[in-house]
Write a protein that binds this DNA or RNA. Sequence first.
RNA 1: GGUGCGGUAGUUCAGUUUGGUUAGAAUACUAGCCUGUCACGCUAGGGGUCGCGAGUUCGAGCCUCGUCCGCACCGCCA
Length: 609
Amino acid sequence: MTVHPFPIRRTTYNIIMYRTKTCGELRLANIGEKVTLAGWVQSIHNLGALTFVDLRDRYGITQLAFNEDASEELRQQAGRLGREFVVQAKGEVAERYSKNKNIPTGDIEILVTELNILNESLTPPFTIEEESDGGDDLRMKYRYLDLRRPNVRKNLELRHKFAFEVRRYLDQHGFLEIETPVLVNSTPEGARDFVVPSRMNPGQFYALPQSPQTLKQLLMVSGMDRYFQIVKCFRDEDLRADRQPEFTQIDCEMSFVEQEDILQMFEGMSRHLFKALKGIDIPELPRMTWADAMKYYGSDKPDTRFGMKFVELKNNQPDNASREIVESIFPAGFQVFDDAAYIGAICCEGQAVYSRKQLDELTDFVKRPQIGAKGLVYARVQEDGNVKSSVDKFYTPENLEVLKEKMNAKAGDLILILCGPDAMKVRKQLSELRLEMGSRMGLRPKNKYSCLWVIDFPMYEWSDEEQRLMAMHHPFTSPKPEDIPLLDTDPASVRANAYDMVVNGVEVGGGSIRIHDAKLQQKIFEILGFTPEQAQQKFGFLMNAFKYGAPPHGGLAYGLDRFVSLFAELDSIRDCIAFPKNNSGRDVMLDAPGPIDQKQMDELCIRLK
RNA sequence: GGUGCGGUAGUUCAGUUUGGUUAGAAUACUAGCCUGUCACGCUAGGGGUCGCGAGUUCGAGCCUCGUCCGCACCGCCA
């Protein structure tokens, strides 16, 4: 991505010329020009009679030189400078005696004739360079200094370009950007709400939107047809590296569409973004059913930068992911396999070189509490084609040959096997192992992108905590028409017209075709355990609207922060947010949240417990 | 709500295993020297509530308990 040089020019409104050029644009071609620069002092090199000052702004670094021609007064001024002082320098562009190949302006310098210190600065608490010596916490406390660093600045520039290209694409396709309110009301289901007390309505609370979901559906009822909004959303849940309490969605909705229309429209948007921002032509997005994603990758957001798909060696519990019984390929004899309901394996190409110690370490990895496997069975295919495994004493070479063929393994490959009583749990464990092996084998480079649609999500998932079915997506998602009869007989197996876009194992967006029929919506609320009164109270506005001619509609929402993080190849979404919150949801720079005055509390009729 | 790791100079860290003299390094900062630096170089100097509190001990940066803070993860996140 290129940043356009700031077009500095004299205008009638800009009488005071702080600068005529930026610190990033001067080249050999400018030699002899008289220029004025302004910026921050990056570094000072005092060689006695000779002083160099690197001046930095958003656009780059330009060296100021104070040499033998400089007046005594100028040299003394230069001697008073410190890091991060704000200065204005006037002088002539000259070719350097010794050039710096590391920066674009490295061929020239400014022979300074006038220096004005516009502001002084304390010594910053960390170095303001590409690789800072400051820790995360410190840099967040002084985020305004952290943002002076070129890499953080570049992330924000990329984010700007990303949002800009989103607007360009959606505008070209007839979408209207419409703002929806931030003060709305609390919704059942979903995440915890951030709430805002209402002074004029004592004892009553607004809630900040977790997403503008219902509002955009109302816009469809209004006939707005194609809507989008780049909008802040709020969820009061615990944070992660890829999760912030306030985050930005690209929220979209269309009327008179089926799932196919949505997938194509937004596949087009992703293609546009990859092309415009990364110069990458991405192939047509493959579509994978949720059932296949779970069966072959153990995840609803598979990282498809690499293969290593699961092979089911046994499954005696047909479920939503694998609807058929798979007889064990192993004869009885090994208690652990005999007792397991599910046995799954991955084949790691060329990894038979793993030593006993490394395999023990992998075993420890899958036994960690957050993964929770009981153990790991491995089998190495040796150079002679024979299989050497950790279960040799239970099985014959012929048994292991069957395994090798089933896994499509060849000499030098390593087969890793997990098993257990619950297929879904083992799949999740195997998924963690697959990702770990993929990382170790260098198959997940950040600059390689693999995108896909995961489709046909289940409508519901069982909540142990609530002891009831919960909407997997949200309660406004429509079931697949052919599965509607199952709503009465087997709701857990009903599939939804819901879809996620997954990039490199990250869910960057998701959506669904909505229910536009008030009666069907009523039925879905019933299955979710709402009484008609509760449904009316919480979603009456939507149900009423649906009685006045709701068009068929659907849409999706992208997580802007996550998508930008992928493009910027970041580990954490915090790095593409100007002022992010920390792990505990605090803004350490503002020291928010904080207490409020008793007077405010009284006005709001709020008393602390 | 839970698990793990961490908190020592402005900053990044070592020191904690085995408690024991004046707590170190690098970098940053200050001063001096240096005519082509760009990780400048050389010399000297200043800089510490070892997160906080309690306990054990003749003695605690080090051991114990509690607590606060940070990071990663599990639960949670329609």
